[in-house]
Amino acid sequence: MKKVFRIVLIVFFIGLFLGTIGFLYNKSQEKPEMYDTKSPEITDIIKKTVATGSVIPRKEIKIKPQGVSGIVETLFVQPGQMLKKGDKIAKIKIIPDMINLNSAESRVERAQINFEDAQINYNRDKLLYEKKVISESDFQKPRLAYRSAQEELKSAKDNLQLIKEGVTSKSGAVTNTIIRSTIEGMILDIPVKEGYSVIQSNTFNEGTTVAIVADMGEMIFQGKVDETEVGKIKQGMNLKLTIGAIEDYKFNAHLEYISPKGVAENGAIQFEIKASVELDKDHFIRSGYSANAEIVLDKREKVLALNESLLEFSNDSSFVNIETAPQVFEKRFVKTGLSDGINIEILDGISKDDKIKGEKMSKIEQMKEMKRKKDEEKKNKKKSNS
């Protein structure tokens, strides 16, 4: 009995030893890796570039004082108001230069003295002429001097009034102290307030901007394109404009200008572009809205395409791994076409039904895949038995 017990015990330990070795061996063996598979699909490939910029009015005018400097006495308008050409914007109160004012007043006094003297001579000679004491030719000289003195006095007074008020009695309603709009449009901004000093625009001075007026019925997109893309675009191309402030709507635009000169910005050469925007009556575009313009460079419709991440490269060739049996893959070279950065056109090498090796599955995904295959095998057995 003891001998039998001893034999059983020895067999048990030998079995335990062999089982342990087998377990450790199986554990040391690498489990086969499983990969996800994807198939090509028929889709559209659109290669495009994006230009960033803003939407601005085509006509934006800065209104400045012409021929007059002074203080803003009255503002007749406010930002957002619509104007017609010639409408009043502001009235300027002139602060006369003391030297010019003193000279003009002195001129008026001299003209008054000369006029009074000429008037005395004229009245005296006129009485003599009426009594036929002097001839008409003798009377013509004092009469001419009187009229000249009269005109000089009037001119001196007008000049004094012009220096003080910026308007003369001859000009009537026409005066440069009233700033008027030069175009029809909307007031975007009024940089000055009542009481602000303004300077006239002339050859030596840009002048103070009283108002900014723009035609909001004609807007353009102004943006920048990188030098790597500017050679692929041309005038007349259609753009899709996305404005950050207007969600879920894209405006159509047409490229009409590409700058011939680039500008260095942040280490890259940028070229300015302009495109006319097709406005929509249901959406009001404000000046300065930031926008992105999508420019379609090339397009392929309904072609066989594959995710670029599934491609592998060797020298100048590209290839994919085709599944020939479950988790068994074979290298196959392909010919590619247009790419949009995500999907790439497949010209030759694979078909729509091929399964392409993808990313490595995680343990959870592998377990799900194994369960799916087992379920499929059970279904197939039931079908065959039935």
Results as ranks from 00 to 15, higher is better:
Phe115Met: 12
Glu116Gln: 15
Glu116Asn: 13
Glu116Arg: 13
Ala118Asp: 06
Ile120Pro: 03
Ile120Ser: 14
Ile120Tyr: 15
Asn121Gln: 14
Asn123Ile: 04
Arg124His: 02
Asp125Glu: 07
Lys126Met: 13
Lys126Pro: 03
Tyr129Ala: 09
Glu130Cys: 12
Lys131Cys: 04
Lys131Ala: 15
Lys132Val: 13
Lys132Arg: 11
Lys132Met: 08
Lys132Phe: 10
Val133Arg: 06
Val133Ile: 14
Glu136His: 09
Ser137Met: 15
Ser137Thr: 15
Ser137Cys: 05
Asp138Lys: 15
Asp138Ala: 07
Asp138Phe: 08
Asp138Ile: 15
Phe139Trp: 08
Lys141Asn: 10
Pro142Asn: 01
Arg143Pro: 02
Arg143Gln: 08
Leu144Gln: 04
Leu144Tyr: 06
Ala145Asn: 12
Tyr146Met: 10
Tyr146Gln: 07
Arg147Asp: 01
Arg147Ala: 09
Ser148Ala: 11
Ser148Gly: 03
Ala149Arg: 08
Gln150Phe: 06
Glu151Asp: 11
Glu151Met: 06
Glu152Trp: 09
Leu153Arg: 14
Leu153Gln: 09
Lys154Arg: 04
Lys154Asp: 05
Ser155Trp: 14
Lys157Cys: 03
Asp158Pro: 13
Asp158His: 11
Asn159Ser: 11
Leu160His: 05
Gln161Asn: 11
Gln161Thr: 05
Gln161Pro: 00
Lys164Glu: 12
Lys164His: 01
Lys164Cys: 03
Glu165Phe: 00
Glu165Thr: 08
Gly166Ile: 11
Gly166His: 05
Thr168Gln: 02
Thr168Gly: 03
Thr168Leu: 04
Thr168Trp: 02
Ser169Asp: 13
Ser169Ala: 10
Ser169Arg: 09
Lys170Leu: 11
Lys170Asn: 14
Ser171Gly: 14
Ser171Val: 01
Ser171Gln: 07
Gly172Lys: 12
Gly172Asp: 13
Ala173Ser: 10
Ala173Arg: 08
Ala173Gly: 06
Ala173Trp: 11
Ala173Cys: 09
